[in-house]
Amino acid sequence: MRYIFCLLFFVTLASCSPETKNEVASDHISAITVSGPLEPKPVGELVIPQKIIKQGYLKFETSDLEETYNQIQNAIKKNKGNIQSDSQQKNYNNISRNIIVRVPGQNFDAFLKAISKGVSYFDEKNISSENVTAQYIDLNSRLNTKRKLEARYLEILKKANKISEILEIEQKISTIREEIEAKEGQLKYLESRVSESTISIDFYKTIAQKESIKVSYGSKIWSAIKSGFYSLSEFLISIISIWPFIILFVVLVYFIRKRFKRKKA
């Protein structure tokens, strides 16, 4: 029986991948006789569709901010998306708005087409697609391997009699369970990025020249007043900080003038 077990063990090591060989060799419990390898061989390969992560960034000028926002809102509803963030900003010469939208991956192209209607040209337009199918397959394969390994250790646990053996096997199961949860989290994150695409939209309106001049000069005058006040404050503070040197200078001038007067007398 011992020779049969040794033969099965070495056959298992020879048939496993390098990573699995290390796991089986380190995790083998010598006190328990198990008929069969710790990790069953995969029955067949799963056919997994392409996993593509799509992202986009658009920046363009518009003549009507509210109308453009309504157009984007309609496109979001039509393509079953949602607004992740919405912010506005006003500068000297324009008013801008940034919206970050998430839409289902299959509606990405339709959404881009909808929000691009009426745009004569884009200041910036960046569209990217990242194929993560290989990464997804690798994670899925490693996850299945860990699950099968966990199942085999649970079977071994049922046959264990000694407390030391039970504790050792439970420790192995706990470690494998942590690895399974970590890989499940990575898969869920990858699937979420594939299932929902992110599009950042910057659109702005140029302020009329007269309004821009008023805002610009008003801001410059106020900035100049504040700058003068801060400069005066800094000057006074610097004088206060060197008061000993000022007193010494005054005393020296006094004695020098007094000495010259004596010479003249």
Rank of each mutant, 00 (worst) to 15 (best):
D86M: 08
I29E: 01
K148P: 08
K80R: 10
R97L: 03
P37M: 10
P37D: 09
E168I: 03
L157Y: 02
K214P: 01
S164M: 06
Q89A: 10
P42N: 14
S129C: 00
Q88E: 14
E211V: 05
W222Y: 07
K77P: 05
R97F: 06
Q209K: 13
D64R: 09
K117S: 14
S197K: 01
A110P: 13
S15G: 11
I137E: 01
K148A: 15
I72P: 00
S197R: 00
A208P: 00
A25H: 15
L112F: 07
K258Y: 10
I76M: 01
D123T: 15
Q186C: 03
Q89V: 12
S129Q: 05
K90L: 00
F255Q: 13
S141I: 03
S227R: 14
G185C: 06
S116L: 02
Y153G: 10
S227D: 11
C16H: 13
L187G: 00
K172Q: 12
Q209A: 09
I173G: 02
N144W: 11
I237V: 11
T20C: 10
T145K: 11
S129R: 04
F5W: 05
A75S: 06
S174R: 13
G56I: 00
A160F: 00
I83K: 05
F235H: 11
K220F: 09
D27W: 03
I239C: 02
S63I: 11
E165Q: 12
G81V: 02
T68P: 06
A265F: 11
G118Y: 09
K77W: 11
I100F: 07
N107H: 06
S85P: 05
L38S: 11
Q186M: 07
K162N: 08
K226G: 05
K78Q: 08
G36T: 07
A160W: 00
I99A: 01
S241T: 01
K90F: 02
L65H: 05
K21Q: 10
G56P: 01
